[in-house]
């Protein structure tokens, strides 16, 4: 611990990631602004669903913008940046949603990036069974992370870990990414041990939650693909474009 401080210090990496993290109200304002522009939509699609798809697209754009500003990531050549994002885009979207619920959500409803609240009973009655089960599964993870007391420091570090979570053999710059993966893991371990000494193995439990984030993201991609096959997605949807790209 630093002298004259009120408690244990926060690893430098996490402090840097906190600086890069946009405020929720800034993200909300930008996305709400984008959604107010009329879309060249499909009149055959229900307006709320079309709006949700555009909202997800805009959230994706925010996430890429964040990644571009991240240390290490911004040093990589574009080919490596693309490989990393093609690997983790859906996990980052899922984790963004999850953390919003942990941080700002209320029991019995989900909070969208626009600030709108949707009652779970409405999801149950209006959404199809696939989306409903996805939302419920996500809510279980929200409860778990709530119980673990996931904080903003851990959130930004876990997001960074997700961004870099690819075997470096698929990249051109092995050493830069491997080094960053190790530093991020060490920072998270250090932080959880210092700040939650009573929690025992918070570090391990958080990493296990990332396994569930990955599983949820696979289920989310399957849902998107199902909607795409049923010709239910808006034209030029960015997530479908990401889904259809060849992955490593």
């Amino acid at each position: 611990p630093e002298p004259f401080s009120g408690g244990p210090s926060v690893p430098e990496l996490i402090l840097q990631l906190l600086q890069l993290e946009p405020e929720e109200d800034q993200v909300r304002a930008r996305i709400v602004g984008c959604l107010q522009e009329p879309a060249k939509g499909r009149p055959d699609q229900p307006a709320p669903f079309s709006l949700l798809c555009r909202m997800a697209d805009q959230t994706f754009i925010s996430i890429v913008d964040w990644a571009r500003r991240c240390m290490v990531f911004k040093e990589l050549e574009v080919a490596d940046q693309m490989t990393l994002l093609q690997n983790c885009w859906s996990e980052l979207l899922v984790f963004d949603h999850i953390y919003r619920q942990v941080q700002y959500g209320k029991e019995g409803s989900i909070l969208l990036v626009t600030g709108q609240e949707v009652e779970l009973s409405v999801v149950a009655s209006q959404a199809g069974s696939l989306l409903h089960s996805l939302v419920l599964r996500a809510q279980e993870l929200v409860l778990q992370l709530h119980a673990l007391q996931l904080d903003r420091q851990e959130f930004v570090c876990l997001k960074f870990l997700i961004l870099l979570s690819l075997d470096v053999k698929f990249l051109n710059n092995h050493s830069l990414v491997k080094d960053a993966q190790e530093k991020a893991n060490a920072a998270l371990l250090d932080y959880t041990l210092c700040h939650y000494p009573h929690c025992g193995d918070k570090f391990q439990q958080l990493l296990l939650c990332l396994v569930e984030v990955r599983a949820l993201s696979v289920q989310a991609k399957e849902y998107l693909y199902h909607k795409h096959l049923g010709n239910e997605m808006p034209r030029n949807n960015l997530l479908i474009e990401m889904l259809q790209a060849k992955q490593t």
């Binding site: 574009v78 693309m82 990401m242 060849k246």
Partner: peptide, 23 residues
């Protein structure tokens, strides 16, 4: 949906390229 070379999504190329504007 359009794709860049080698299965790269064009949107990702646009967002990551300093010289192109995102849609």
């Amino acid at each position: 949906p359009c794709q860049g070379p080698v299965g790269r999504p064009a949107i990702l190329q646009a967002l990551l390229s300093p010289s192109l504007r995102a849609r």
